[in-house]
């Protein structure tokens, strides 16, 4: 009988370790993998992927009713929302400063400072602060957030190709981690990592967001770009070896399958459960492609993702057959 020799790949590279929080606040470390996702028999996976819960600095009227109900009155204040998210098992809070969007109130630096301070006060978890994704407003509110939270080691994003200098510089000046976001393309992701590094951000202070495609809406593109980035990083390319963050909740809940309960085919099934699986399957698929942080919206998806990560990390430390 032929003997089974289990193939074990030697990876010359390793994903950079990035620490969030600390300095009195809880600490979360992501990255550090020396093998592909959850293949513990082959190399070390020192840190489990982290789950961030998305919180806004305004009551998001556009969110699906199902989501609004489950968060209830917590939607009225970012501090209350963050507190509830923390109680529901978030590892991180992802605070989206959407009130700064010109369509949603066009708030400025002062409001950003106040909201970030309130969330930092309400929870002891590390915090990710995301801008409204309008370049000039991003610069304004993220600068303010970076200053207000000096030394708290937030993750701040997004640095985009046209608009990375100001945010990256604010991260350096105030001791934060920069998130670089690029549109589902491996070379653009690498290039932005290089640009952010050239500004002076160290490798242990960069996260990359390769852009999330939700289940049925480009998931396969994100999945493959992330697999390629992770393979390149493990093969020794330091400029693709940044931990990855995926805005799963935002993308999954944008889709009809998660939002709509009436006027859709009966073959889509029951709406609440479908929505949770839409977010959950997107999350797990991308975790298996290399995501280090998934940003989620629904408490049940959080619970499922946490249980799944527990099970996928269960083999850590064993050399299995």
């Amino acid at each position: 009988m032929p003997a089974v020799e289990l193939p074990v790949q030697k990876w010359p590279g390793r994903i950079h370790e990035v620490t969030l929080g600390g300095n009195g606040r809880k600490k979360v470390v992501v990255g550090g993998e020396a093998t592909l996702p959850f293949l513990h028999f082959e190399g070390a996976i020192p840190h489990r992927p982290a789950i961030a819960i998305e919180v806004h600095d305004r009551n998001p009227a556009e969110w699906a009713e199902n989501l609004r109900q489950v968060w209830g009155s917590a939607l009225k204040s970012p501090a209350a929302w963050a507190k509830k998210a923390s109680e529901l098992g978030a590892d991180l809070i992802a605070l989206r400063l959407s009130s700064a969007h010109p369509e949603n109130g066009n708030t400025g630096a002062e409001a950003a400072k106040k909201n970030v301070a309130q969330v930092l006060e309400a929870v002891d978890l590390p915090v990710i602060v995301l801008g409204p994704e309008v370049a000039e407003k991003d610069n304004e509110v993220l600068m303010a957030a970076a200053e207000a939270a000096r030394g708290q080691r937030l993750a701040i994003g997004d640095c985009m190709e046209k608009n990375y200098r100001t945010i990256a510089a604010a991260c350096i000046a105030n001791g934060h981690v920069a998130i670089g976001k690029t549109p589902i393309e491996i070379n653009l992701a690498k290039q932005l990592n290089i640009l952010i590094s050239d500004v002076g951000v160290s490798r242990d202070a960069i996260l990359m967001d390769p852009t999330t495609g939700a289940l049925g809406y480009g998931l396969e593109y994100s999945y493959s770009v992330m697999e390629r980035l992770r393979l390149a990083g493990l093969q020794g390319d330091a400029m693709t070896a940044m931990p990855m963050i995926c805005t799963v909740g935002e993308e999954a809940w944008r889709q009809k399958e998660a939002r709509v309960s009436e006027g859709v085919p009966t073959t889509w099934g029951q709406a609440k459960e479908r929505a949770i699986l839409w977010e959950g399957i997107t999350a797990i698929s991308l975790l298996e492609a290399g995501a280090d942080i998934v940003v989620l919206r629904h408490p049940r998806s959080v619970e499922l993702a946490r249980a799944t990560i527990d099970k996928l990390m269960a083999g850590a430390g064993q050399r299995s057959a």
């Binding site: 009966t266 073959t267 099934g269 709406a271 699986l277 399957i281 698929s285 499922l304």
Partner: peptide, 28 residues
């Protein structure tokens, strides 16, 4: 559903489900 999803992506050729409901099967 989540484990079936993992197995669809990672190398299962046949996945046997013990439950059938459209809201589970459609995402898969």
């Amino acid at each position: 559903a989540l484990l079936a999803g993992q197995q669809i992506a990672k190398y299962a050729s046949i996945v046997v489900l013990d439950h059938f409901s459209p809201e589970m099967v459609y995402p898969l």
